[in-house]
C-alpha cells in the first residue's frame, strides 16, 4: 500500500499548531484583567477615591499576609481548608463517578434513582448544613460530608450524561468484536466519558471551595472561612481581605490542577474540557 506521507504530516503539523503557542498566548491574556484591577485599586486608594479603612489597598493586604504567615495562623487555616476540600472532593468524586457509571449504563438503575437524586440536586447544599450538624455533631464530619455531597452531585450528573451520550458507533464497534460488558466498560465507556468527567470535576472543585468556606463561616472555629468571618467581626478588615485573596488563589489553583490532570489523561482529546457551569450550591 502506498504511504500518503504529505497528507499525514500535514495534519499532524496542523494539530501541533492548534495546540501549541496560541494556548500560551491565551494564558497570558488571562492575567491582564486581574493585574489591571489590582493596579486600579491600589491607585484609587492612594488618591483617596476608595476609603482604605474598608477596602485596604493590595499593598497593605500583601504586607498583612506576610505578617499573618509569620504569626502562624494563616498557613494553618489554609491547610485545614485544603484538607476539608480534598477529603470531600475525593469521597464525593469517587462515589459520584461510580454512581454516574452505574446509572449511565443501566437504564433501570437510572429510572429508579434519577427522580430522587434530581430532587435533592436542586436543594442548595449549604441549606443541609444544620441537618448534617445534627447527624454528625461538631468537628470535621459535617463539613466534609457536605462538601462530599456537593461534589457527588456534580460528578454524578456529568458522568451519567456522558455515558448516555457516548455515540452509538463506539459501542457498536466494540460489540462487533463480541466484547463482554466488562470489556465494553473498560475500553469504551470509561475512556469515552473522561473529558466530561473532568469537566464535572473542575466545576465540582470550584463549588467544593465555596461550600467549605461557607460551612467554616457558619460553623466557625477554624479554616479560611472562619478567618474571614472572624476578622471582619473584629474589624480586622485587612485580615479578612487576606483570607479572601487566599481563597481566590486556592480556587484558581485547584481548578488549574484538575484541568491539568484532565488534559494529561485525555491527551487524545482534541480540545481542553470546557465547563458548561451549572452552579447549584
Amino acid at each position: 500500500m502506498s504511504v500518503p506521507q504529505a497528507e499525514a504530516q500535514g495534519s499532524t503539523a496542523a494539530a501541533a499548531v492548534a495546540g501549541g503557542r496560541p494556548a500560551h498566548r491565551r494564558a497570558r491574556i488571562g492575567w491582564i484583567l486581574p493585574l489591571s484591577l489590582v493596579l486600579l485599586w491600589e491607585g484609587l486608594t492612594a488618591v483617596g477615591v476608595i476609603d482604605d479603612r474598608f477596602f485596604p489597598p493590595p499593598s497593605t493586604i500583601g504586607i498583612g499576609a506576610v505578617r499573618m504567615v509569620a504569626e502562624g495562623d494563616l498557613l494553618g487555616d489554609t491547610l485545614l481548608t485544603i484538607t476539608r476540600i480534598a477529603a470531600g472532593f475525593v469521597i464525593g468524586g469517587i462515589l459520584g463517578y461510580l454512581t454516574g457509571l452505574a446509572t449511565g449504563v443501566f437504564l433501570t438503575a437510572r429510572r429508579i434513582v434519577e427522580p430522587t437524586l434530581s430532587a435533592i440536586y436542586t436543594v442548595p447544599k449549604i441549606a443541609l448544613l444544620p441537618v448534617f450538624l445534627t447527624i454528625f455533631g461538631f468537628g470535621e464530619a459535617p463539613k466534609i460530608a457536605l462538601v462530599s455531597l456537593t461534589v457527588f452531585f456534580y460528578v454524578w450528573i456529568y458522568t451519567m450524561e456522558a455515558v448516555v451520550q457516548i455515540p452509538r458507533g463506539y459501542r457498536d464497534a466494540a460489540r462487533s468484536f463480541r466484547v463482554t460488558r466488562r470489556q465494553e466498560l473498560v475500553h469504551v465507556v470509561m475512556p469515552a466519558t473522561l473529558p466530561s468527567v473532568f469537566t464535572g470535576l473542575r466545576v465540582a472543585i470550584a463549588v467544593a471551595v465555596l461550600v467549605t468556606i461557607s460551612s467554616e463561616y457558619i460553623v466557625g472555629g477554624s479554616g479560611l472561612g472562619y478567618l474571614i468571618f472572624n476578622s471582619r467581626a473584629l474589624f480586622k478588615i485587612e485580615d479578612a481581605f487576606v483570607g479572601i485573596v487566599v481563597v481566590a488563589f486556592l480556587g484558581y489553583t485547584l481548578q488549574l490542577l484538575v484541568m491539568r490532570i484532565g488534559a494529561r489523561v485525555t491527551r487524545w482529546h482534541g480540545s481542553a474540557p470546557v465547563a458548561t457551569v451549572r452552579v447549584n450550591v
Binding site: 466494540a174 468484536f177 463480541r178 487524545w268
Partner: peptide, 29 residues
C-alpha cells in the same frame, strides 16, 4: 471471529493509539 465490520463514522476509538485500535479485536478476544 466469524465476522468483523468497518463502519463509516465513529469507526475507531479516539482514546486509543493507532496500534491500540488495530490490536483491539485481538486484545478483547
Amino acid at each position: 471471529m466469524p465476522s468483523a465490520i468497518v463502519f463509516q463514522d465513529h469507526a475507531i476509538f479516539p482514546w486509543k493509539t493507532v496500534l491500540q485500535n488495530i490490536a483491539f479485536g485481538l486484545t478483547v478476544s
